[in-house]
Design a protein around this nucleic acid. Structure first.
Length: 819
RNA sequence: GCGAAAGUGGCGGAACUGGCAGACGCGCUGGACUUAGGAUCCAGUGGGGAGACCCAUGGGGGUUCGAGUCCCCCCUUUCGCACCA
């Protein structure tokens, strides 16, 4: 930048070195002090930090630095989500080892973060690829296995052909892979699942503890968990047995004119066996399966009449049984009762196959059932003993009836599925299980953990587990019988790693347990968690789940580890997210090089509040750089004042400027701490700077004025220090203070000094501003009215009219209502 | 289709519980200092009107002394889920 600017290179290097040498941001062992745990989502070590990281970490850094200055024992850690596919892909491409690639990236990115001046407790740094870290993933897995919360199951799984691995349901976004957007296919495979569904209700209930989560994140999680209240009812199918259906509209069951099963339903084969159209039916099932594999857009509804009949236990009627492609095996029971009159899907199907449509709900308006279904509620009709009841009452009574007769009961269903964690990849946590011909699948012994990733492994990315080709890894002893055993060769989903890293930070080197109980007790819950919205359901539901499990294990005392969440918006350029493929990436390094880290931080915080998207503009960072330069020259010119004797400022200009100062302190503190808006604090500091420039000459001329200027500069440096920490340290030292400013006391504001003594009351006539009345603070209405009505503009506006009433808001506004 | 969030100058955005709409910054215009300036400083900058004033927070209603803010309807955009029975 220009020669006129401050020497940010020298200053930033100097203070980064100072902080490192003095271990300035490590935590205190003093447990009597109040703690503050400030956490940002740790990055995947992809190679370089991007603007999203800069934003995320700058936001967290302001909070952490403010809290430290306010006397909290602050835990502000950083680490690396270091296992995962890109490392493996890079290794395949460049012929290196994933670990080499990952460690190199970590080293580089660590330096980048240090150059941002981020106040991390670097002594607590962790990487999930450390065996001492993933060891505990294995420990948790075994505990889950012992408790029946980890299990192995075959079935259809989501398969990403590009990543050549399985994906959890949460990782399928809009039918594509969350990482590469490749359309997901279905495959039949055995894999390991974690029983997150056992916590569905808790996850839902405990949302009420997430008092400071954005509403839309909670909504997304609710939708994902997808709780529905309804009932299960058994329909007896002749020659096959009872098939249980799930419905949320039991009140419509008298209108059920057929039953439909998913083609994947376990009964499907039995239903068609021996039927005259068995061959055709098999073909239909195969076709549906093929459709599902492709996972194309919603296929046209198709069905197959099995020729069998099922007994509706309410009506005693025998209704046809269909296999239908629109019935999902993975939701409810995989079988439905179809009520064409009151369900659109059933209606469409009934029209196509000429099935009866029988109205059993009377809605508020007439409905043409030949054209459409009525899906609302109403009064139940033509429903035997339940006729005449409103829908909700009918449901309750009907469920009670089913329970009594033992053919059904009220039931709750969730959309949430168990978390499939097997990945056919190398660079992940080995699943610590051993297959033994004699004992079955048995867990590795706890004392043998970690099961380490072997080093010399051929990586092909072809889709079968690389570990399967390493005999030294695969062949082992069965912990049960001591005979030969084969290790599980799939690795864990890396979301397992990131589901508990915030707990490991409290005692990152602890080696007899995943974390020290006393440390957890002191540091948890996390006081604030800041990260991208893209994790609203993946990471943020997994970590809640793992915490609930760990609480049952007696390892954690909180039900919810993170009661406050801030989801920051994207950094965009040209209106869309920066990405290599779009070629609209701005490299943070280049900006640090050109304007310095402080200017970059100030701009990225100033440009938008945290939750909003932020459009990058280089003009913007120039503005921030100018702002810092202005303060720099003011500090330079006021340095001599800091050597002068202290005096008490007494003049009116000083009084006015100090008032503005204390108002600024109040606003900056409140906006950071309470609202977490970091753009407005910067704005108010700029405003204060403008006021300072304007007032400085007259303040300086007053008795004790220099002391006032000195106070203003000193406090401004403190206020700015979380935003521009390097410069603040430099100024702090220049003005004769003992570094570091990072642990100096945050300025407190003086309510008396901040208070205005003159109020500028807005005078309105019929709600329109007509004048102002300057009067002493706290002046009574009568006095203000008198002043107001003396204003010529006000006088002319009310001339010849009748005053109906006056609305007076002390010190702010007087509205004279006339007619 | 269902669910959620958001619509304010040329741009990013301010406006705490309803109380001067447009703080602050960018950009732009004019000026000063300069051999020069894409540096710095000063002034101006929602629209209309000569002016008193009038009009303006996606559109339309409403509540209120007073609405960007609260209520109802509509429009647009973004995001999430998507045959969930």
């Amino acid at each position: 930048m220009s020669e006129a600017g401050y020497d940010f290179k020298r200053i930033e290097e100097k203070w980064q070195k100072y902080w490192a040498e003095n271990r300035a941001f490590e935590t205190s062992e003093d447990r009597t002090r109040p703690k503050y745990y400030c956490l940002e989502m740790f990055p995947y070590p992809s190679g370089r930090i991007h603007m999203g990281h800069v934003r995320n970490y700058s936001i967290g850094d302001v909070v952490a630095r403010l809290k430290r200055m306010k006397g909290f024992n602050v835990l502000h850690p950083m680490g690396w989500d270091a296992l995962g596919m890109p490392a493996e892909n890079a290794a395949i491409k460049h012929g290196t080892h994933p670990e080499t690639w990952t460690r190199d990236n970590i080293s580089h990115m660590r330096e980048q973060l240090k150059k941002m001046g981020l106040a991390y407790a670097w002594d607590r740094e962790l990487a999930t690829c450390d065996p001492e870290y993933y060891r505990w993933n294995q420990y948790f897995f075994i505990r889950m296995f012992d408790r029946g919360l980890a299990y192995r199951k075959g079935g259809l799984v989501n398969w990403c052909p590009k990543c050549a691995t399985v994906l959890a349901n949460e990782q399928v976004v809009g039918g594509g892979c969350w990482r590469c957007e490749t359309p997901v296919e279905q495959r039949v495979m055995e894999q390991w699942f974690l029983k997150i569904t056992a916590y569905a209700e808790q996850l839902l209930q405990d949302e009420k503890l997430l008092t400071n989560w954005p509403e839309h994140v909670l909504t997304m999680q609710e939708n994902w968990i997808g709780r529905s209240e309804g009932a299960r009812v058994a329909f007896a199918i002749d020659g096959v047995g009872d098939v249980t259906i799930f419905t949320t509209r039991l009140d419509t069951i008298y209108g059920a004119t057929f039953v439909a099963l998913s083609p994947e339903h376990p009964f499907a084969q039995g239903l068609i066996e021996g039927s005259p159209t068995e061959a055709e039916a098999r073909q239909f099932i195969a076709q549906c399966a093929a459709e599902r594999m492709a996972r194309g857009e919603p296929a046209e509804k198709r069905g197959l009449d099995t020729g069998r009949k099922a007994l509706n236990p309410y009506t005693g009627e025998m209704v046809p049984v269909f296999l239908a492609n629109f019935v999902l095996m993975e939701y409810g029971t995989g079988a439905i009762m179809a009520v064409p009159a009151h369900d659109e899907r059933d209606h469409e199907f009934a029209l196509k196959y000429g099935l009866p449509i029988r109205q059993v709900i009377q809605g508020p308006a007439p409905n043409d059932y030949a054209k459409s279904a009525y899906t609302g509620e109403g009064v139940v009709i033509a429903s035997g003993p339940f006729t005449g009841l409103p829908s909700d009452q009918a449901r309750t009574r009907m469920a009670a009836h089913a329970k009594e007769r033992e053919f059904g009961e009220a039931a709750v269903t969730y959309k949430l599925r168990d978390w499939g964690i097997s990945r056919q990849r190398y660079w992940g946590t080995p699943i610590p299980m051993i297959h033994c011909d004699r004992c079955g699948v048995v867990p590795e012994r706890i004392e043998n953990l970690p099961v380490r990733l072997p080093h010399g492994v051929a990586l092909t990315g072809s889709g079968d587990s690389p570990l399967a080709h390493v005999p030294e890894f695969v062949n082992t002893r069965c912990p049960g019988c001591g005979g030969p055993g084969r290790r599980e060769t799939d690795t864990m989903d890396t979301f397992v790693d990131s589901a508990w890293y915030f707990l490991r930070y409290v005692s990152p080197r602890f080696d007899t347990a995943p974390f020290d109980a006393a440390d957890v007790r002191y540091w948890l819950p996390v006081d604030i968690y800041i990260g991208g919205i893209e994790h609203a359901i993946l990471h943020l539901i997994y970590l809640r789940f793992i915490t609930k499990f760990l609480r049952e294990e007696g390892l954690v005392h909180v039900a919810e580890p993170i009661p406050k969440l801030v989801t920051q918006g994207m950094v965009t350029l040209g209106g869309s997210a920066m990405s290599k493929s779009k070629g609209n990436v701005v490299d943070p390094d280049a900006m640090v090089e050109k304007y310095g880290a402080d200017a970059l931080r100030v701009f990225i915080l100033f440009a938008a509040p945290p939750e909003k998207d932020l459009e990058w503009t280089e003009h913007g960072i120039e503005g921030s750089y100018r702002f810092l330069n202005r303060i720099n020259s003011i500090v330079q010119s006021t340095v001599p004042l800091f050597r002068a004797a202290s005096e008490v400022p007494s003049g009116p200009a000083a009084r006015e400027l100090l008032r503005k100062l204390h108002q600024t302190i109040r606003r900056v503190t409140h906006d950071i701490e309470v609202r977490l808006h970091l753009n407005t604090p910067v704005a108010s500091m700029m405003e204060f700077l403008n006021a300072f420039d304007a007032a400085a000459p007259s303040v300086r001329a007053e008795a004790g004025g220099e002391a006032a200027l000195r106070e203003c500069v000193e406090k401004l440096i403190l206020l700015l220090s979380p935003f521009a920490p390097h410069l603040a340290e430099e100024w702090w030292e220049m003005t004769g203070h003992q570094p570091p400013i990072a642990t100096a006391a945050w300025p407190s504001f003086d309510e008396d000094l901040a208070r205005e003594d003159q109020a500028d009351v807005i005078v309105q006539v019929n709600g329109k501003v007509r004048g102002h009345a300057s009067c002493p603070f706290g002046a009574p209405e009568a006095e203000v009215s008198k002043l107001a009505e003396a204003d010529p503009k006000v006088a002319s506006a009310i001339a010849g009219k009748t005053i109906v009433k006056r609305v007076y808001v002390p010190n702010r506004l007087l509205n004279i209502v006339v007619r």
